[in-house]
Design a protein around this nucleic acid. Structure first.
Lengths: 240, 240
DNA sequence: TATACTTGTGGTCAAATAAACCATAAGTGA
DNA sequence: TCACTTATGGTTTATTTGACCACAAGTATA
């Protein structure tokens, strides 16, 4: 089993820990800002692909579960824990990685950008949000993984209320609709959207309104956590 | 990289081929018979778990993609190729495999039982169909993988017409309904089911009827391959 | 201050769909 | 012939959808 240099998060010291040598994790981290869906990419700061952009990822330690490895890596990469994270699938074309046979397990994460400060991870020289339409050519098969994630996201938001993980705690119905429009690539009717989403009783109307807008301020809403969980399990139907 | 004994399918000779040593594939193979959903399990013929039942699976070769490995293993295990096969996800608890750290990638397959002859695979002493309700305690985390697959199947049949892969080429509407009832664990209305499924234009009515039944014989149907593919991509909505 | 403009919010109406249920057809077996 | 079973094709009512309208409530500008 390979032993890889790992820098301890707290102390900054280099420690040694055994990792699995033919399996990695790569994360597709989605965010949403001003009507645009975005993905967090990192620029590699070392290795043969120095300078090129790719998905944030890393190695799995010998003693941790795959899910835990994904959570750990995501915390290291974004500084966030307890965010929405889901395994996508394993990607395993024999030639996907040039230095040997490595299978990667894709994860997909949805984060509230308001909670996140951009910063580069350990081995990354830079980290940046890219709009979906502006994704550059990425290393290895990362463009494929990203495409797959996007497809997955589109399916997922129609079957469970996971899209909400991309919005701030408090949001207007219009913002929620714009999120769905952006993810699904469709146009919706304000009025019908409002009727449909309110009927599910998923949202709690707050005693608060938008501020600093140059038009009539809209009411703010947040989720009802209980109904959210129930609908996440049961599945919900959000067709347009 | 580990070198593992592999018996060549055609010649029966033992050949050596390098395999990945910390990743396996396990397949959950569903079949449907006389109104019951079933799973194909194998009894291990060698190793520390000799005699115990588990999911059919195997090692990934150094030179093949993960998907190809799944197809190859399935052909070796069931004698069938070109059947419905889909990756589930990777299962990677650190202690799931007692002899070292091994992550397994789950696949799920749907087969027409009429096409399949039961036979044991290379390292298996026996292979047998089990009704979902009668699944015994399986090796490693295979019960977890099976539970996950079942959940996945339930979601999948509501979003794509994949359940059809479990039925014979020609079937009656009643048989199709029974399949859905069994998978989803619900009761349906004959009349409404018929209306709904026929409206999608997915089925082709044949000039043929059931035989050897002691009641009015029902018309047989088969799929329209073109519409089947279109609906598989686009997604279809089969809520009850 | 009046007016235009923008977005929010609450409706209407017709068409499509779903759920529950009924009636008859077409076959079997006694 | 009759009783019985399943197939098949309705009907009826409630619910949901989609398209569209009208006014409310604010801002920006003349």
């Amino acid at each position: 089993m390979k032993v890889k240099k790992i820098i301890d998060k707290e102390s900054g010291k280099v420690i040694e820990r055994s990792v699995m040598n033919s399996i990695t994790i790569d994360c597709v981290i989605f965010g949403f800002d001003k009507g645009s869906l975005e993905v967090l990419l990192v620029q590699h700061g070392e290795g043969i692909r120095k300078g090129e952009w790719g998905l944030p990822g890393g190695w799995i330690r010998e003693s941790e579960s795959v899910d835990n490895a994904a959570h750990r890596l995501l915390a290291e990469l974004t500084g966030l824990d307890s965010i929405y994270l889901e395994q996508l699938k394993a990607f395993g074309e024999p030639d996907r990685f040039p230095l040997g046979r490595v299978i990667t397990i894709g994860y997909f994460a949805l984060i509230k950008k308001e909670d996140y400060d951009v910063r580069a991870g350990f081995t990354a020289s830079d980290a940046k949000w890219y709009k979906i339409a502006d994704i550059p050519k990425l290393i290895y098969d990362h463009n494929d993984i990203l495409d797959y994630s996007l497809e997955h996201l589109r399916n997922r938001v129609r079957q469970a209320p996971v899209g909400f993980n991309l919005l701030p705690e408090k949001f207007t119905l219009f913002e929620l609709m714009k999120l769905y429009e952006e993810i699904l690539g469709v146009e919706m009717d304000k009025s019908n959207f409002r009727r449909k989403i309110l009927r599910m009783k998923l949202l709690v109307e707050l005693d608060e309104k938008q501020k600093d807008v140059s038009h009539r301020a809209a009411k703010l809403y947040e989720f009802d956590q209980k109904i959210y969980e129930k609908l996440t399990k049961k599945g919900f139907n959000f067709e347009f």
